[in-house]
Amino acid sequence: MGVVYPESQSARLGVVMRQSPGVTPWAKWVWRATAVLPGAADASWKLLRESDGVSEFHASTHNLELFVSDAEAYAHELQATTPSVYVILREVEGARTDKKPIHVLKVTVSPYEAQDYCDSGEEIVERVPMPASVLHWVTAFVDRHYENEPFVKRRRNELRTDRTQAGIGDARIAQLSDVYRAPTPIQSEEVE
C-alpha cells in the first residue's frame, strides 16, 4: 500500500490490457488499455481471456488516489460525456513485440494530471470508461470536498485615466509630433 496523505482516499484498480494483431508489417501486435477492475488483487499479466488472436490480460493493479487539492479536476472529469479513468503507460525499451512491451505506471481520474503526462511525450495516456462503483466513489469525494467558486468580475477603480495626456510619444525624444508616426515617402530623383 502506498503512502497515506491527510485528506486523501485511495482504492485499488486492476488494469486490463488487450493484445490484438497489428495491421502493418512493422507492428506485429497492438496493445491497448480497455478496462479497469475495481478492488482487484495484485496481478502480473494474468491472462483473462483469449479469442481469435486477441488476448486480454490483467496487467497490474495500482492505487487510484484522490486528493482534496485536486477535487476541482475530478469535478471537471465528472462533467464529461463519459467520465473516464486515465491509464498512464510507458513503452519498455528493448522489449520484443511479442512480449509485454508496455509498463503500466499509474491510474488517475484527473484530466489535468493526464494532460501533464501527454505533454511530456514519454508516456502513453489512454482513457478507459469509469466503472459505476468508481464513479459513485469519486462523485461522493467531490461532493464532500469541492466547492465551486463563483466567477467574480473585477471592477475598475474610480481613477479616470482618459482625461489627461501623459505626453506625446517617448519623452526622451524631443519633437513636436508622435514618435510612432507613419513614415513619409522618400522623394526619389528622376533619372532622365
Rank of each mutant, 00 (worst) to 15 (best):
V36A: 00
E122Y: 10
P25A: 09
S84T: 14
A174L: 09
V191W: 02
S120N: 10
G167Q: 04
E190S: 10
F141H: 00
A114H: 01
I102W: 01
L159M: 09
G22L: 10
D162V: 07
V68Y: 02
H62Y: 02
G169Q: 02
W29E: 03
D98F: 14
T184D: 12
P183M: 12
V152I: 10
V3K: 11
E50Y: 11
T81C: 11
V4W: 08
K99L: 13
A114F: 02
L176I: 08
G14C: 03
K28I: 14
T97D: 12
G94D: 10
V138A: 01
G169V: 03
H62F: 03
V134F: 04
E7G: 05
R12G: 04
E123V: 07
V68G: 04
Y5W: 10
E192R: 12
A73N: 04
C118M: 15
E113A: 06
L78G: 03
L37I: 15
Q165D: 11
T34M: 02
V92I: 11
F141T: 00
M130I: 14
S10C: 15
N63E: 15
K28C: 11
S84I: 12
D143M: 07
H62V: 02
V134P: 01
I88V: 07
F67P: 00
D119T: 07
D119R: 11
D98N: 12
I186E: 15
V23D: 12
V68S: 09
G121N: 07
V85P: 00
D42T: 07
V54R: 11
V36Y: 01
E93H: 09
G169A: 07
L13H: 01
D170S: 05
W137K: 02
R127W: 13
S44D: 15
Y5I: 04
P183G: 09
V30I: 13
L13C: 06
P101S: 13
N148M: 14
D42K: 08
R181L: 08
I168G: 02
L48M: 09
P111V: 06
V107F: 02
V179A: 08
G53R: 03
V30N: 05
A132K: 13
R127S: 15
D162Y: 08
F67G: 03
W29A: 02
C118S: 15
S69N: 05
L135Y: 12
E93T: 11
Q187T: 09
G39M: 05
V68F: 04
V104P: 00
G94H: 09
E65L: 08
V15Y: 00
R155H: 03
A75Q: 08
A171N: 15
A71Q: 01
E147P: 01
G22M: 08
P185G: 10
V54D: 06
Y86T: 04
T61V: 15
R90L: 14
L135N: 05
N63K: 13
L48G: 01
T82L: 06
S51L: 05
G169Y: 06
M17W: 01
E123R: 06
S177E: 08
D170W: 03
K46I: 07
S55E: 04
P185L: 14
S69T: 06
M1R: 08
E56F: 04
A43S: 13
E123P: 03
